[in-house]
Nucleic acid binder design. Structure first.
Lengths: 137, 137
DNA sequence: CTAACTGCAAAGTTTTTGCAATTGC
DNA sequence: GCAATTGCAAAAACTTTGCAGTTAG
């Protein structure tokens, strides 16, 4: 899929703006939220451009794409290892600050004030079959 | 949101079928996959019914709704604590067997044969504000 | 110059919903 | 009998794409 993207990127005001917005917020915005924010600086920017650039930035590895069970994708400009708490009632998503990878649910509750119901751990990488086809990945 | 669902559930053949399908597979199917499978047993079932029941089952806590960065939701009938590996190239998702919550990426690579790029840890629960409004959650 | 990028609008995908008929309790 | 559920089809929500014009290198 997109990982094999060989095309040479050219800089663009639109892409810089989008990346700037993403890096300057602590929320984990949706494409639409980013679009609304971007329009304040660049009124003619289009939603299609926002989507295209979010996909490019994700493919470059400059941002992380997240999906939290509600249908819309969310984006995170912070690439450091950090974890999330999600409210199953209102759907908000926050970072968990200063967490050790071995923290227990109890510790998370103390740190965040959330009542934790469950957690999810997901590893991303390349499966053996795909690795065989494109060993560069 | 839906968590405050007080309505009394009535049993239905359709819902039982959907739950049965989900519990008898090891893949993490999309709504459409479940729909196709269900049609073989019950040719008149509609896609709308599949979606409605998946949402009901999720609200009841009988299944887990997952989202892996590709746009479609996926569902998991296994509620025990277990983790996932996802291939960023082909998009497939597998369970990680017998994993300790403290396993390292290296251990995951040995267990699964995947080349691990990153991981994601997400806690779900109720945020302080929502807990205040509906302490039952 | 030329390939990447853009805005716009149309199309594609996935999910939800309104409605009249049916079903479980 | 009544409220929950269903099938169907239409609508909504989210994302991608085709195209002609613009821009960065």
């Amino acid at each position: 899929m997109e990982v094999t993207n060989q095309r040479k990127l050219k800089s663009s005001r639109q892409r810089d703006l989008i990346l700037g917005i993403l890096r300057s917020t602590h929320c984990h915005p949706t494409a639409d939220w980013i679009y609304e924010k971007a329009r304040k600086e660049m009124p003619n920017i289009s939603l299609g451009t926002v989507y295209r650039n979010l996909n490019l930035l994700r493919d470059e590895g400059k941002i992380q794409e997240l999906c939290f069970g509600r249908n819309m994708n969310r984006y995170d400009g912070d690439l450091r290892d950090h974890y999330h708490v999600r409210c199953v009632v209102c759907g908000c998503v926050e970072d968990v600050p200063h967490i050790s990878p071995r923290a227990s649910s109890g510790e998370i509750e103390k740190l965040t004030g959330y009542k934790i119901h469950s957690h999810r751990l997901e590893f991303s990488g390349v499966c053996p079959a795909c690795h065989k086809n494109a060993p560069s990945e």
